[in-house]
């Protein structure tokens, strides 16, 4: 199956559908003659569609990166403490320097996200190697603990409203021209990952292999941390948490294409974009003219997909049947 062309063909109709779906009906072909429709299209629908595509692609790529960093398929940027780290950074800046410029906030979010992700990596290094499932559990609990810290600080400082916008289910309904452009930074970080694809693929094989091939595991690790932290921070700041994309999409693509990242990363990016876009459109249609946040739609669909992945593939090559003899 040729995935890349198939996805490249699937995405434009989805994007067109996204341009046409919303509270007010807009015909994209005739919008040129209707200033009102053109306004909606250029100021709201187009930015929104681009934001969704960028988010989906970048998160899926970040998922591949973190999975090769921790060498575990059941981890994603949302289960590694990254998003909560970003929220913590934003919160600290908001408290310490309320009038700070955007770039400073972003830098703080990214740095904090890197710190918490590094903490996660340090924790799982101490777990028994063979226990594949402990890694995501540790990540989920760490995320939960960090999230409770963030919520608590936000609540004590009357900033809970902002905090909720970051850590609650992600939502694209607020995206307008001028309010989503940070996501291009996320897209750029994901593109950076593609240039280093071979390095991540080799790192995924293990430290010894990497060293044997003359690769510095630490340098690749740092690069990966930057990619994951920047992507997640930008997404969290702009639209909130989008669960399961970084977790599920790399698994599905790897099942079909294997793990040659140079070839599979573009497919991962397109699949992520298509998945989030489809879910966003679904969220706009289910209760038209109201909207459901895409984070909720993905919370249900993504969790279902993840459970399927979890139970289809025998964990760590262990046979399901019991020993007999």
């Amino acid at each position: 199956m040729r995935l890349l062309p198939a996805l490249a063909l699937l995405l434009p109709p989805l994007m067109a559908a996204s341009l046409m779906t919303g509270a007010s009906s807009v015909d994209i072909l005739r919008a040129g003659g209707d200033p009102q429709a053109l306004l909606v299209l250029m100021e709201s629908r187009l930015p929104r569609t681009l934001a969704v595509v960028l988010t989906g692609a970048a998160l899926a790529v970040a998922g591949v990166v973190i999975q090769s960093l921790v060498r575990n398929r059941f981890v994603g940027p949302e289960t590694a403490g990254t998003a909560e780290g970003a929220a913590l950074g934003l919160l600290l800046v908001a408290i310490l320097w309320p009038a700070s410029p955007v770039w400073l906030r972003m830098a703080a979010a990214s740095l904090c996200a890197m710190a918490t992700t590094a903490l996660f990596l340090a924790i799982i290094r101490r777990l028994p190697v063979r226990e594949v499932m402990l890694v995501p559990i540790a990540g989920l609990v760490l995320s939960g603990v960090l999230g409770s810290v963030v919520t608590f600080i936000g609540w004590q400082t009357d900033l809970l409203q902002y905090v909720n916008a970051w850590v609650m289910a992600g939502d694209f309904s607020g995206v307008l021209a001028g309010r989503y452009e940070l996501l291009w930074v996320a897209g750029a970080a994901a593109a950076l990952a593609w240039f280093a694809a071979d390095r991540f693929a080799i790192l995924g094989l293990g430290d010894q292999v990497a060293t044997g091939l003359g690769l510095s595991g630490r340098a690749v690790m740092r690069l990966g941390l930057v990619v994951v932290a920047v992507v997640t921070s930008m997404v969290v700041t702009t639209v909130g948490m989008i669960p399961f994309v970084g977790l599920v999409v790399p698994n599905l693509v790897s099942r079909v294409m294997g793990d040659n990242l140079r070839a599979s990363l573009p497919v991962v990016a397109l699949s992520g974009a298509a998945l989030v876009l489809a879910c966003d459109i679904l969220g706009r249609l289910v209760r038209h003219p109201y909207e459901l946040p895409v984070g909720l739609v993905l919370g249900v669909i993504g969790a279902g997909l993840f459970l399927w992945i979890l139970h289809r593939r025998p964990a760590n090559g262990q046979a399901r049947g019991q020993a007999h003899g």
């Binding site: 059941f74 594949v132 499932m133 559990i137 969790a303 459970l307 979890l310 139970h311």
Partner: peptide, 12 residues
């Protein structure tokens, strides 16, 4: 496979 069971429960 206890860890897998836990992970399933968490995701559920």
């Amino acid at each position: 496979d206890i860890p897998r069971t836990i992970l399933t429960g968490v995701i559920l």
